[in-house]
Design a binder for these strands. Structure first.
Lengths: 327, 327
DNA sequence: ACCCTCGGTGTAACCGGTTACATGACGCCC
DNA sequence: GGGCGTCATGTAACCGGTTACACCGAGGGT
């Protein structure tokens, strides 16, 4: 039983494909009788329209491409959830592509989307502006999230990493902490870079001593960072990790080393993943799902008519919990 | 600048579309010179092949449809991650569709996939076998996860909910607990139903007293369940929630009520989300990502050649942590 | 010199839908 | 009865690729 096509339906209903197509799409210039015969034939044949073919002739796919880096769990799940919520509200599907790895692979992933989607959401904190502009199919509406883009010519959404980092430095200063450690994210990642640059600047402004060690956004790297600091006898009374994952690893290591949080060391993270709330971790809240939702809204707008390109800066918000609360 | 098509490339390179197509796809019966001219023209025009059109003529999309219910965060993220890992290894993209809501909507979502994907992964614990068989496009390879399917005629993967639930009951019995509460998931959800049925049967076998209250898989419902039990003075020394989310809510409520875990009440959940490890929650480990990975592997197999339909049962594993550890 | 093979190329049909345009039937009005 | 508008329907081109098949020229064997 080969798949039935619209021509099979037309034959069975003794009508032309045009009429069948019109009937299926609810046009009003179709007689009641024809409509009847069509639904009958559809039922008998078990016909299901071929979405791919439809897209081709309509030049419209009702799908949005989502290109994400290989993300730490919570963040990924939340941002996709936000996008999905908005997408399904408007009858769009999400086509997912994780670009693990090299920029060649990234360019390929972007090209693969052409002709499959009506628009593209790209989040690639580790790609250069150049990789991006060569990779992005021209003429395909797209929106960038937390991505380097010199041009400013495309719609983009950025997280205000600097504001978040400053809030943490100010908070530490207000608590009277002076010797701070910052566990940064991987070099070249734009979020990591912005957070670390803004944080050390803010520390300098507040007269805080700030030591930077490098991590990779994974829990284990936060843990190792603290272990090494303790081992070489570095003293500090405040720790800011560039994301919650690393902060959580750091927490464990601090406690293993017999240091009390928040008495001996105050700890803060970044992102506000659900786990942070449960562990009482002070952090910078990002409202990830909203970010995804907003990206989709703007993308749909720019698919509809020409939408103003331009950056949009999402303000984060410091959430103080027990890892920095004086008691 | 309208999008360049393969015919534009052919014109510019002064070749036929056939030769261009062959050159682009790396056939070996193309002269070196022609190949050269094609790459040149492609560069000048900024040509990117139209994946949708390609799919139509090849009858192959290199995409897998994933239909999931509206999932609690961790689970969603993990299972998609597993699928994605395997998919991108084989050059497939994932087309996501969350079927929030009614079974009409579900049927629609399934149909929308026809002609866009080479295969379908469906996880719909709340759909009846009937809804499914009417909704699934025939002729499209598919695999079901944790889904009611009377027929057994399709490839399917099931979680051994019963074994997991029994393991918890046995564990509680071994700890000497007698008065047990089970916070079940939403009625009609196959996972919820299987867990609750197996658990109460196992309790009966072990001579345990088991009270069942209903939740909805969300954290808040676990919390409320405990609050109500405490309020009406129900005494119990063991609690098994049908998932970790609810177990976590229950934990909070127990502590607020001044009950000590594990001394007064032992608590266990189901799923082993990352949070469970951090909170020391005893639970039934599901290896969610592996489940997703495995689904994809089997689906690809059944796309290739005819693959044996049939169930596959994934054994879960009890992980004992501090919420039930005698100290 | 002839035939055959073979490698490179082009023409046109095809995938499964949509839709501009043509057609033909019908009713209405003068 | 002729002209016209309206409505349901059909024919065929089109979306942007792939590919079966035809074609052509060159080289080799006898």
């Amino acid at each position: 039983m080969a798949e039935a096509t619209i021509r099979d339906v037309a034959r069975k209903a003794e009508l032309s494909v045009a009429t069948v197509s019109r009937a299926l799409n609810g046009f009003d210039n179709v007689s009641e009788e024809a409509r009847e015969r069509v639904t009958q034939a559809v039922r008998e044949l078990g016909y299901v329209p071929h979405a791919g073919a439809r897209s081709l002739s309509l030049a419209r796919t009702n799908a949005i491409g989502v290109v994400l880096p290989d993300l730490h769990g919570e963040f990924f799940s939340e941002i996709v959830r936000g996008m999905d919520r908005e997408a399904s509200r408007h009858g769009y599907l999400l086509l997912l592509s994780n670009l693990h790895g090299s920029s060649d692979q990234a360019a390929l992933a972007l090209k693969t989307m052409h002709g499959r989607v009506d628009g593209l959401i790209v989040m690639a904190p580790h790609l250069s502006a150049e990789d991006l502009s060569t990779g992005l199919p021209p003429g395909l509406p797209s929106i960038l999230i937390n991505t380097r883009d010199g041009s400013g010519s495309r719609p983009a959404i950025h997280l205000d990493n600097a504001a978040g980092a400053r809030a943490v430095a100010d908070h530490f200063a207000a608590l009277g902490r002076r010797r701070i450690v910052h566990v940064a994210g991987p070099e070249g990642n734009i979020d990591a870079d912005e957070r670390s640059a803004a944080f050390s600047e803010a520390c300098a402004n507040q007269g805080l001593d700030c030591e930077i060690v490098r991590g990779d956004f994974e829990e284990g790297s936060g843990q190792r960072a603290v272990e090494q600091l303790v081992e070489r006898g570095h003293r500090f009374d405040g720790l800011f990790a560039a994301n919650d994952n690393m902060a959580i690893g750091a927490l464990q290591a601090l406690r293993s080393a017999g240091l009390d949080v928040p008495r001996d060391v105050v700890v803060a993270g970044f992102d506000d993943i659900p786990l942070a709330r449960h562990l009482g971790l002070t952090t910078v809240r990002v409202r990830i799902a909203e970010l995804g939702e907003r990206a989709l809204v703007r993308l749909l707008a720019s698919i509809g008519r020409e939408d103003c390109p331009g950056d949009e800066l999402h303000p984060p918000e410091l959430v103080v919990r027990s890892t920095t609360k004086k008691n």
